[in-house]
């Protein structure tokens, strides 16, 4: 999982298939990066996510909670069609601003 920090803005690029099999590691990595860099804004980039199920919902919710705890904000970007549909079906739009869906 690659990430970069610029002006207190942490961008984390998620990739591959996000399911229960891979979720714990992803959740811990994101949490660790937030705790290390204490960003004002955390951006989760979904461009290279090829599949996501409800395990990804828990990952996003945990990241949202962590950013709230440190008084920061979170944003999701470049969400492909399949993860987008899962986020929508899980009602995530109520919790977090979800951008327009990008191409498949």
């Amino acid at each position: 999982m690659t990430s970069y920090l610029q002006d207190k803005q942490l961008t984390i690029a998620l990739s591959g298939e996000i399911d229960h099999h891979s979720a714990r590691e992803t959740m811990e990595t994101i949490g660790g990066k937030i705790d290390t860099y204490l960003p004002a804004l955390c951006i989760l980039d979904f461009r290279d996510v090829t599949f996501m199920d409800s395990s990804g919902i828990a990952i996003v919710i945990n990241a949202v909670r962590r950013m709230r705890e440190i008084g920061g904000k979170i944003r999701l970007q470049n969400i492909p069609a399949q993860p987008y549909k899962v986020l929508e079906a899980a009602g995530m739009a109520k919790l977090i601003e979800i951008p327009e869906r990008s191409g498949t």
Binding site: A23, R24, D53, S54, S55, I57, N62, K85, A89, G91
Partner: peptide, 22 residues
Amino acid sequence: TPLFTTGGAERSGMGFTIMESF
């Protein structure tokens, strides 16, 4: 029921809701 889970923080309780809508 949406959000009902016995799985703790690693689960969101949305699995059946997603199956139903898809």
